[in-house]
Computed example of a mutant assay.
Amino acid sequence: MRALLALAGSLAIVACQPAADATETIVAAPAAERTARETGGLKTAVFAGGCFWGVEGVFSHVRGVKSAVAGYHGGTERQARYDLVSSGITDHAEAVRVTYDPAVVRYDELVRIFFSVVADPTLKNRQGPDVGAHYRTALIPTSAEQLAVAKAYLAQMESSGQWRGPIVADIERAQAFFPAESKHQDFIVRYPGNAYVKRWDLPKIAALKRLYPAQYSARFQRG
């Protein structure tokens, strides 16, 4: 265990770091053919797609989102620590738990936004400069309705021809979600001058505003 902790400490410094040779693609994802039908108040879903700072940042600017919390999905509570998860030695994925009002924004609309400006569904175990299974891209539904929408949308993306490669984004069974350390919450508004935030996250928010102006909120919804 001591050796694993030493490895985690040495590798954590490369987590969520800007890389000059990495790129990200903004795609105007198609509107969902299978729309979500959710009633009865606020709903929650989990999204994994690279470093959680940007995932949280985008969803915190979506109208109808009441909370976006950065955290770790899967794995164990004991290992749900940034230094361990970002080293790649655990089974967690960096993820964001989104609480939203389906009367304002539907789950399928959140999924569309996610694959338009947050995560490239053709990349396996990486996004932008971040590489490793803990940066995998996955929809993590928390209800049967969300699962049906997620399955239909991945199939629709595959047949749409709007991405150059095959769709490798996955659907994961909802497991335990562990909120990340407080310093990782609301990261982009707390550290707007951070090099990673400026290079990778602020362009995603600008793309959200450009592609989905009706769903963009200038106000950052703190988690």
Rank of each mutant, 00 (worst) to 15 (best):
Y72V: 03
R199A: 15
A31K: 12
M157V: 12
E145T: 03
Q175W: 04
G54F: 07
R126I: 10
A103F: 00
H134T: 12
K183M: 10
G161M: 10
E181P: 04
V104T: 14
T39N: 09
A80T: 09
Y216V: 07
A31S: 13
A152F: 11
T137R: 10
R106T: 02
D130S: 06
Y216N: 08
A15C: 11
D130Y: 01
T44Y: 01
R173P: 04
P166S: 12
K204T: 09
F59Y: 07
E77D: 14
A28I: 02
W53H: 04
G161V: 07
A133N: 14
Q215A: 10
D101A: 09
V58F: 08
E181W: 10
L110G: 04
L154Y: 10
V111L: 15
A70H: 06
S10G: 15
T90Y: 03
Q215W: 09
V27T: 15
S87L: 06
A28T: 08
L11E: 13
F220R: 02
K204R: 14
I171L: 08
A45C: 14
W53Y: 06
V149H: 07
P213T: 08
L84D: 03
P179H: 08
L208M: 07
L110T: 04
Y212D: 04
G41Q: 08
T25E: 13
A3V: 08
T23M: 06
P141E: 15
Y135R: 13
E38N: 02
M157L: 15
A144V: 15
H61C: 02
A155I: 11
E77G: 12
G74W: 10
Y196C: 08
T44R: 12
L42A: 13
M157Q: 13
D21A: 13
G49C: 06
